[in-house]
Amino acid sequence: MRHLKIKQFEESFFRVIMFLSTLLIVLTLFLIIFTILYKGLPSLSWEMISQVPKGGFYFGKEGGILNAIIGSLYLSFGATIIAMIISLPVALFINIHLVKRKKLVNAIRFILDLLWGVPSIVYGAFGFAVMIYFGLRTSLLAGMITLTFLIIPIMIRSMDEVLKTIPIGLMEASLSLGSTRSETAYKIFFKQSLPGIITAILLSFGRAIGDAASVLFTTGYTDNIPTSISQPAATLPLSIFFQLTSPIPEVQNRAYASAIVLTFIILLISISSRFLFNKFNKHNIKS
């Protein structure tokens, strides 16, 4: 009897804790969105997103952040595409060709997890060192390379987590039909995990576009829209930083407007990821 009461108390206690934690998270999210909308929406205008900064923009004069929007998009698309070309074969390789080498695969996963945890400023410093070594200047290219390093561990591990869930029976089926391991990788496993792979790519894109520290030394900052990858470029996170550190209230509000733009881009990415996930999910074997 007493035992039952303790169990009941436990149950309701943990329910309350879980409910409160969930509430806290949801409220925080809303608070963040509310803050940037409240402070930024009045400053958000067509001019803001369609023009580059004019003289004295950072002192409250005319212009917009088109340079940073375009710069961020170039940079993140570039880095995501390079990272994708490298990550996909690695993720497939460790899940299919190395399926018997459990210890080696675990070691690779461990290293990737460590790299995932390295702060992005460290990648920035590393990218800077590489840049100097090769005699590059702050440029889109240097930024892309640095961002690629930053998101590769994220991309490989996210793809890996999806590929890991594919039952070995599917690999056996494919091999029994006379496929080689590479055919199994690209014709079967790739197809089976395509929704997850797309999610992994978009997740990495979101991480790339939101990162400020790694591009600080490598991409530089400019008021112009870059016309080649050897030119420096502006980025949204840095644009927010520069505007927010201004003592002028109008410029500070523009920082929040820029934050709205960045949040909106990431939101768009999330929604399209959901959409693509459902679109490519139809052939998937559910187990």
Binding site: P167, E172, A173, S174, S176, I188, Q192, H283
Partner: peptide, 21 residues
């Protein structure tokens, strides 16, 4: 080994259709 496997059809405990039509 691929040639050897091709010579043997496999039916497993659970069916694993390939992710296609």
């Amino acid at each position: 080994i691929t040639e050897i496997r091709k010579n043997m059809g496999l039916l497993s405990q659970q069916p694993y259709p390939l992710p296609m039509n």
